Simulated assay, not measured.
Amino acid sequence: MDSKDGITRCISDSSPAHYVVKVQSFSLLTKNSIERYESGEFQAGGYKWKLVLHPNGNKKNNVKDHVSLYLALDEATLLQPGWQIYVNFRLFLHDQNKDNYLVVQDVIGNERRFHKLKAEWGFDQFIPLKDFNDGSKGYLVDDTCAFGAEVFVCREKSKDKGESLVMVKDAITYKHIWEVTNFSKLVSECCVSKPFNAGNYKWNMKLYPKGKGDGLGSYLSLYLALAEPTTLPQGSRIYAQILLRILDQKQAKHHFGKANYWFSASNHENGSSRFILLSNFTSQYLGYLVKDNCTVEAEVTILGMVGALS
């Protein structure tokens, strides 16, 4: 056994437990410009893996005069955010003369952590090309060789969960005006404005002509809602101050409500079910509904955001 730079090399009579890649006419890889070869997938420890071979060294890592060999987690992009897999693995090269194996691995106790952003580990200098090409050593015989792998998943875990709250300094207020026409002819339970931008999010105003919840039948209900709540990353929340206003078109004595709310994918609509009495809203003596039209305004100020801890 030989240990150097955190890597152990030893000889074993046992063949690889999980996968073998036999390469015939090895020299044709280089001749045909195959600088990186990925094996088919194999399963170990509940995950899918591949062997990755650089026959003349990994050029991206400036490796020369060596064969580079790696273990890669297949379909790593499908892992849940923050998911990590801790692995001990051994990579093999068959000595065809003695029918045993050169085994290269990290020093015992060193686990490699595979995750979405780091799905490949292994050895830049798996074996010097000089030794590999020396027929007397048995690794490349009649231009044929065989590599292998054993993979042992030690543990799995999700990266420490947490969140980051960012409060906004010098927050900007965004304003949107919505003209509602032919109010008496509205038949929908809920009327929705066109989407508008406030901060980095899209919003709608939602008006319930006959009320909603405890305001049903007696009040006009008015809400602000996220227009695309399902696009929010999991765990994200938005803290916003909203002001909803119905304009008095006669005396400019506008009716409004103002409050701070948390918005999220599961709580994407906030406002008032009893925003204004329908009898006041439709009164001819007041200026909220004139010629069957009304004007609704929203002011949105993003005060803070919560996202996953990076």
Rank of each mutant, 00 (worst) to 15 (best):
P128W: 01
E299S: 12
I127S: 05
A225Q: 13
F147Q: 04
K206L: 09
H255S: 03
T173P: 08
N197Q: 10
T30C: 07
W178N: 09
T8I: 13
Q24E: 15
A240K: 00
L117W: 08
G135Y: 02
N110E: 07
K64Y: 02
D142T: 09
N97T: 12
D74L: 01
A44M: 06
L286D: 05
L117P: 00
K64M: 08
L78N: 12
V63R: 04
E150H: 03
K60E: 13
I7Q: 05
S12V: 06
A149C: 13
E41Q: 13
K185W: 07
D95E: 02
T301Y: 03
L222W: 03
W49I: 01
D214Y: 09
K159E: 14
F123M: 05
Y239R: 06
N110Y: 06
F26R: 03
L71S: 05
N100S: 11
L69V: 04
I177C: 06
D5W: 07
L79W: 09
R112W: 04
P16I: 00
L165D: 06
S158C: 11
N197T: 11
S272Y: 11
W121M: 06
L224A: 12
R274N: 09
N61A: 12
E189T: 12
I238P: 03
H115K: 03
G45Q: 06
M1R: 10
G148W: 06
F183C: 02
N88D: 13
H268Y: 15
